[in-house]
Amino acid sequence: MKRSTGARLCSTAAIGALSLALLTGCSSDEGSKKDSGDSKGASSSSSSSSSSSGSDAKALTSAELEKLLLAQGEVKGYKVADGDDTLPKSKSAVKTDKAACDPLAWATAALAPGDTDANAGNTVSADKASDAPTSLDDVSEADIEDAFDITLTFVGLSSYDGDGAQKAVKAVSDGIAACSGGYGLKADGETSKVTKVAKEKGTGGGDESVAFSEDVDMDGEGTATFHAEVIRKDNTVATFYTVNFAAFADGGDMGPVPAAVVTAQLGKLK
């Protein structure tokens, strides 16, 4: 992502946070999920083993995956939204200059990292509305800065026939090694350069997990570090990718994928 994209997302998030605070008694009604089958995912980089899905495994439908996504009220201290305004609509909107890096790019966009059409995704963010002012007259510069200090996690679910889920996780793992030196990325018309990819330890869980970090060039003004996790449970793969908008603006570290979000999402998978 380039800084221009980040500015757009930051503005959306900040305005949304303040608006929610100004709507008295409204914590968040945004538990609805997308009705389309497109979704995004984020990824993780530690590894567990074990293989629960077999050759006879059947993929869940996109509609079934939508029901398994986290909903409002299922993660204490977090808000859930459908992600329609922030997530790419399909894999065709996310392209890299190295085929081996495609699964990484898809996972960080809440899209299926493997070969499947069964996909769903949403976004989860820390709920800061209770600390925000309740009147526009009370909004200070510090309140505006605080509104940008939002951590947003893109969550994607995808499901596969047979051993497709294992292949999807392997594609991500292979991609981390193949793309360690970076790759070019074009998403929704914005171009950016990932300068480094590294495997790391994530929350883990499920039957297999892999986590990684990506350093992204900030238009020649330093780099920002993003973190992702990809976790398989049976023949469903969950992806997680986190952005902190305040850190993004400064070109810093986005921070880890929230363990509470990962644990809650895995708890809903069959």
Rank of each mutant, 00 (worst) to 15 (best):
M1N: 00
S4D: 12
S4I: 02
T5H: 07
G6K: 00
A7Y: 06
A14L: 05
I15H: 05
S19K: 06
S19I: 10
L20Q: 09
G25N: 06
C26D: 12
C26K: 15
C26R: 13
D29V: 15
E30S: 10
E30H: 09
S32E: 14
S36D: 14
G37E: 13
S50A: 13
S51C: 02
S55Y: 02
S55A: 15
S55H: 00
A59E: 04
E64T: 00
E66L: 02
L69K: 05
L70R: 04
L70N: 04
Y78R: 04
D82L: 04
G83A: 08
K89L: 10
T96D: 06
A109M: 09
A110Q: 00
L111H: 02
A112P: 13
P113H: 11
G114T: 05
D115C: 05
D117N: 14
A118E: 13
G121D: 10
D127C: 08
A129I: 14
A129L: 03
A132C: 04
A132W: 08
P133C: 09
L136C: 07
E145K: 15
E145V: 14
D146F: 12
D149G: 07
I150C: 08
T151V: 08
T151W: 03
T153Q: 06
V155C: 03
G156K: 06
L157M: 08
L157G: 08
S158E: 09
S158M: 11
G162T: 09
G162Y: 10
A171V: 05
A171T: 11
G175A: 12
I176R: 11
G181D: 14
K186D: 05
K186R: 04
T191F: 03
K193E: 10
K193V: 07
T195Y: 01
G204Y: 10
V210A: 09
E214M: 14
D215M: 01
D219R: 01
F226G: 11
F226L: 14
E229A: 13
D234N: 14
T236D: 11
V243D: 07
A247G: 15
F248R: 14
D253H: 02
M254V: 04
M254T: 03
G255T: 00
G255D: 03
P256K: 07
A264T: 02
A264N: 01
Q265I: 01
K270R: 13
K270N: 15
